[in-house]
């Protein structure tokens, strides 16, 4: 057992319906884990529960993150401790500019680490550099957060926040969906390039294509709220060829 992210016997309900069912998962520092499963298997619930969204009843189990009981922390406290969720459907926040939002978020994370807000000049330099990597035009930074963004633009913007906030645990919830082929490569490669021994990733996806560019250390097949099989990258290839039938039949 590690002391990074440690989920034991986790069950969670939404409106009396059991969505996560006795889930066990360990993610160590520097590891990349992929969670694969068909639609409706509870993958997004898992990411929301980890990020601390309201509306889920945790009926049993524990989640430990860096030695702390994650469940006792509010969503912003989890964020400030290094948990980042790249949303499947990022929301629009009218009137709030993208760049201002990212600065507010970054400064909040920095404050938790005892750092002063980043100086405007340094911040601009950093965000310009990261936007360039992701092929995000500068004028999009001045637009209102996600307002009128296409599906792909929203996903790229999630990736930008990921690069800017540089979390220790990034949860990517269907980050590849909505991206065209070229954008997909840019986003996947930029995320892959930040792999290091100190930061981990949990990639939630139904397709293998993202995993071809960000090769996971572990692949978990997630069906009906629990992991029913774990393996290496070869498991993702098998799913790509044969689908989830073998796993659903097991049930």
């Amino acid at each position: 057992m590690n002391n990074f992210l440690n989920i034991q016997s986790l069950s969670a309900k939404v409106e009396d319906k059991l969505i996560i069912n006795n889930l066990n998962l360990n993610v160590d520092k520097g590891e990349v884990h992929a969670i694969m499963g068909p639609n409706g298997s509870g993958k997004s619930t898992l990411s929301n529960v980890l990020a601390g969204k309201d509306g889920y009843e945790i009926t049993s189990g524990i989640i430990n993150f860096c030695g702390e009981d994650l469940m006792s922390l509010k969503p912003n406290e989890r964020s400030n401790r290094g948990i980042f969720l790249a949303f499947q459907y990022p929301v629009e926040i009218p009137g709030v500019t993208n760049i201002n939002f990212i600065k507010t978020a970054l400064d909040s994370n920095r404050k938790h680490r005892g750092l002063d807000p980043l100086k405007p000049g340094d911040f601009l330099k950093l965000i310009k550099e990261k936007s360039k990597i992701l092929g995000i035009p500068e004028d999009r930074l001045k637009r209102q957060l996600n307002v009128g963004f296409s599906g792909g633009e929203k996903k790229r913007n999630e990736a930008l926040q990921l690069l800017m906030l540089d979390p220790s645990l990034a949860i990517l919830d269907e980050t590849d969906s909505g991206l065209d082929v070229d954008a997909f490569k840019i986003v996947a490669d930029s995320i892959n390039s930040r792999r290091n021994n100190d930061s981990s990733m949990l990639i939630i996806t139904h397709y293998q294509r993202l995993l071809e560019r960000i090769e996971p250390d572990f692949v978990h097949v997630f069906i009906n709220g629990s992991i029913i099989e774990s393996g290496g990258p070869e498991l993702a290839s098998e799913i790509e060829s044969n689908g989830y039938e073998r796993f659903t039949d097991v049930k």
Binding site: N76, F87, P94, G95, V96, F101, T104
Partner: peptide
């Protein structure tokens, strides 16, 4: 939730959204 996930506490998040609204 989106704002909180990025590190803003609930009051900061409301303030940001309200300021945007206005």
């Amino acid at each position: 939730f989106y704002c909180q996930q990025r590190g803003l506490d609930e009051e900061e998040a409301i303030s940001l959204i309200v300021n945007g609204f206005c």
